[in-house]
Design a protein around this nucleic acid. Structure first.
Lengths: 121, 121
DNA sequence: TTTTATACCTAAGATTTCTATGCATTTACT
DNA sequence: AGTAAATGCATAGAAATCTTAGGTATAAAA
């Protein structure tokens, strides 16, 4: 998954979209590089998004109508801000609650002693 | 991911290996079909592993030396049991604690209000 | 007797992510 | 002043994972 310094590199996949939507739902607008830094900071360097995964996902979200973009000139550089649409905002809520619920389900599988036989062995 | 009845189909990936290792760490031996049924039952039908993902992963685990196999004849059918090796057992513990820790990290990103600006906007 | 459950398997394709690039500006360091 | 690091965007090829869609066969249930 993107880059996870402290986690094995492919433990979890499919959370990038959820992370992006969540951050955008709490900040009126963010740009790509800002998102990578925010995640890095929030997770104490444990999750670092790779640009090779981030930018294509942002473009996909835009193509799907979940976000709109706005370019701002900072000196001679162009910064591309992303902002949630109404649809994107709804999807953000769905994805987050879905993920939190999935975590509870996974806890049942991973936390308890699941030792019992229903079938002959 | 495999099949998740109640979750969007690609929310999480990379947990299959962890799930298998965990179940095998709590049952001296299990066979493929049994694993699918156990997960289905534990998660109240919310996670259903697909055989197209499960069997290749079991074969991979065997090729890597994390599990060994043992074939048992049940009537005219052959049942293939999988059992953790010492290495597999160690990996099971690592993967599970790693995943649980990752969930905590994700909670920080997804649960809180992450609204604050470190940079100008 | 026909469907469902049990039990194994593989291959093609889709999707996601990583790695490795590339380009360019701005800031910090020496 | 010059170089390295940070900022900021992007893409393309390869790798990994999973889904879909098949295939085979036995046992149990309807």
């Amino acid at each position: 998954m993107y880059i996870c310094l402290m986690y094995s590199n492919d433990l979890i996949k499919g959370t990038l979209r959820t992370i992006i939507l969540k951050l955008l739902s709490e900040n009126s607008r963010m740009y790509g590089y800002e998102i990578t830094q925010r995640v890095k900071e929030l997770t104490d360097d444990e999750i670092q998004l790779t640009e090779g995964a981030l930018y294509p996902m942002l473009h996909k979200l835009e193509a799907e109508g979940a976000v709109t973009t706005e370019q701002v000139n900072i000196g001679k550089r162009v910064r591309k801000y992303y902002k949630l649409t109404t649809n994107g905002s709804a999807e953000a809520e769905e994805k987050v609650s879905e993920f939190l619920r999935f975590m509870e389900t996974m806890k049942v599988v991973l936390n308890h002693k699941n030792t019992f036989q229903l079938w002959q062995s």
